[in-house]
Computed example of a mutant assay.
Amino acid sequence: MKNKFKIATLLFFATSFTLGACSDWTDIEGIDIKQPNIQEQNPELYTKYLENLCEYKKNQEHKL
């Protein structure tokens, strides 16, 4: 009976120390992720796109 009690006590303390030690590792930290857009990747292509878009919006043949 004493051996079972010692093993259970040892497992309890080992588990509590293990779970307590992981709390610092599992903290959530924010990270900055830079996701470039088309304007930053290719400014000339973006300028052409805006010009074409303005021309399309001026045209009355499309659905409003």
Score class of each variant (00 low, 15 high):
M1S: 12
M1P: 03
K2W: 14
K2S: 14
K2P: 02
N3S: 07
N3A: 02
N3M: 09
K4R: 05
K4H: 12
K4V: 03
K4I: 07
K6T: 06
A8Q: 07
T9P: 00
T9A: 10
L10E: 03
L10D: 00
L10F: 15
F12D: 06
F12C: 08
F12T: 07
A14E: 07
A14W: 10
T15V: 15
S16F: 08
F17Q: 01
L19V: 12
L19S: 07
L19T: 05
A21G: 13
A21F: 11
C22D: 02
C22F: 11
S23H: 03
S23G: 07
D24R: 06
T26W: 06
T26M: 06
T26I: 09
D27H: 04
I28P: 06
E29W: 01
G30M: 04
G30R: 01
G30P: 05
G30Q: 12
I31V: 10
I31Q: 08
I31A: 14
D32T: 12
D32C: 01
I33C: 02
I33L: 09
I33D: 05
I33S: 09
K34C: 07
Q35N: 10
P36C: 04
N37T: 09
I38W: 10
I38C: 03
I38D: 00
Q39W: 15
Q39I: 12
E40Q: 13
E40F: 09
E40R: 06
N42A: 08
N42C: 08
N42M: 09
P43G: 04
E44L: 15
L45I: 10
L45G: 03
Y46D: 04
Y46A: 04
K48D: 01
K48H: 08
K48P: 00
K48I: 11
Y49D: 08
Y49I: 14
L50N: 04
L50H: 04
E51H: 07
C54Y: 14
C54N: 13
C54W: 13
E55C: 06
E55K: 14
E55Q: 13
E55L: 10
Y56W: 10
Y56K: 15
Y56F: 14
K57C: 03
Q60I: 03
Q60S: 12
Q60Y: 00
Q60D: 13
E61M: 00
E61P: 00
H62I: 01
